[in-house]
Write a protein that binds this DNA or RNA. Structure first.
Lengths: 180, 180
DNA sequence: TTGTCCATGTAAGTGGTTACATGATTCA
DNA sequence: TGAATCATGTAACCACTTACATGGACAA
């Protein structure tokens, strides 16, 4: 149930609308926490009902009104409590590995095609992360220091994508040998 | 919805009871696909309703009756179709990274304690995987060849745990510097 | 003129977790 | 004597996905 807490983390930085928050889940925090806009809007409503956030409505003509959410002291206390609690290890459910594990029921060429498709996705993702890293590295040391914790999460992304790609090269080798 | 397909993969190997299957999710396939026994029993029922598996009941006194499930030709066809389809990349939801990302709201020492706790879990997991690998490596080449695809999934586990641990060493360094 | 961005949601359905239930056997 | 293993589930709840809805602005 950390969608809640990831929203609080973002709101602790600055007030934002649901839309702005949902954008953050397409980069930054989205590299390790995925959420759809439907989920986000619902969770914000629940947080407001709990009194962990409040919002002000900005009226707009022709469009739905904007709701600018901000964290309350109760919300910040809740966030701090969670940050000091035991985090349960994230569970892995990796369908591509299920496919490989049961792969003997289809041709290696079929598996190979799918692994290569995923390789492209991971390569793209790695490039995005590398672009963000070079931005970070160009900051002065005061700014670098203020982003040192988010930078650790970026490093996690870089490390895990690189490890995935190295592994997949090996997989491709094995599958190519099999489909001769 | 790959719990279904992971069950079919296991049943394609040999018939099994729900209990036996749920054991497999504590090792082997469980390293990349987690499922509780409640989920498994329910899914097996659904698969039987669909005609993808059948079962024979073994009556037992004092205990619930055993149901030995086996895959049908319809089930095998369904499995093959899935193995040839596009697998959607697994989504990552990593609460520990959310914690680090928002870590400036608590002391570094608190973060450090939690990261170290997770390190132990990952180390244990790596050891388990290494033990399985040494078993695999002691097989003769015919057997090695028949397990070559499952071995690739094992390698994924090894690679990802090692990458995680390397990253976490860096995290510990940064957090120790911060909590001086 | 098609598509993407802005901006918010509802509703139905699926998948997963947590709590609870039963009861014999075996091991420390 | 208490915990773990065997063996199967139900029920309530929570999280997440997919489909649908609205409608103006602006760019290719």
């Amino acid at each position: 149930m950390s969608l809640k807490h990831s929203l609080l983390v973002l709101l602790a930085d600055r007030p934002a609308t649901g839309y702005e928050l949902s954008q953050k889940y397409k980069e930054a925090i989205g590299f390790f926490w995925k959420a759809s806009h439907q989920q986000i809007y619902k969770q914000l409503k629940d947080l407001a009902d709990q009194g962990w956030v409040t919002f002000e409505e900005e009226l707009q003509a022709g469009k739905p009104d904007k709701k600018k959410y901000q964290i309350t002291s109760k919300g910040l206390a809740g966030l701090r409590a969670w940050l000091s609690s035991e985090i349960k290890p994230s569970k892995t459910n990796d369908a591509l590995l299920v496919m490989l594990y049961g792969g003997k029921h289809v041709d290696d060429a079929v598996l190979l095609r799918e692994v290569k498709r995923h390789q492209l996705l991971h390569q793209k993702n790695l490039q995005k992360l590398e672009a963000i890293e070079s931005l970070y590295l160009s900051l002065d040391s005061t700014q670098k220091n203020s982003y040192r914790l988010p930078y650790l999460t970026l490093k996690r992304g870089l490390s895990s994508e690189r490890a995935w790609l190295e592994w997949s090269d090996e997989v491709v080798e094995v599958l190519m040998a099999g489909s001769l």
